[in-house]
């Protein structure tokens, strides 16, 4: 059984390796304050759309840029530049997760996940 023992050890080593490597490199959920203090790191920021602030989307200039303001879970407002086209039913979202980092005064997001009320219940559906 010696060979299999070696195999077993390799399997366990890979498993532990994956846990450590991935936890070290993974981005974390954070609020804007934390993202500002660590501008080079990518964060997932959870928050709500600030409906009083303007949303700027002009596809004639850049169809892949959309600006709005997000209020994070601590209540901090921040201008967001999303490098994607404006998602459908954006205004109806009740929660937004942005993936990106702080650049200057803005939060630049590469990706957005939205949660809409009642639209995407329990079954498979997708919004990006």
């Amino acid at each position: 059984m010696k060979k299999l023992h070696i195999v077993g050890i390799i399997v366990i080593a890979v498993a532990i390796g994956v846990i450590f490597v991935s936890l070290k490199n993974t981005s974390t959920y954070a609020d804007f304050t934390e993202a500002i203090s660590n501008p080079d790191k990518e964060y997932h920021v959870v928050g709500k759309l600030d409906k009083d602030q303007p949303q700027i989307y002009d596809p004639k200039i850049n169809a892949d840029q959309f600006m709005f303001t997000l209020i994070d879970n601590k209540g901090v407002h921040k201008q967001v530049v999303l490098h994607k086209s404006k998602p459908q039913d954006f205004e109806k979202s009740e929660q937004i997760v942005l993936i990106g980092k702080i650049e200057g005064n803005e939060f630049h997001a590469n990706d957005i996940l939205m949660k809409c009320p009642s639209k995407y219940n329990d079954n498979k559906a997708q919004i990006k």
């Binding site: 959870v46 929660q95 997760v97 996940l113 949660k115 809409c116 639209k119 995407y120 219940n121 329990d122 079954n123 498979k124 559906a125 997708q126 919004i127 990006k128």
Partner: peptide, 9 residues
């Protein structure tokens, strides 16, 4: 929760 683009009830 918010880990998925799927909203689970």
């Amino acid at each position: 929760g918010n880990a998925s683009v799927h909203a689970f009830t």
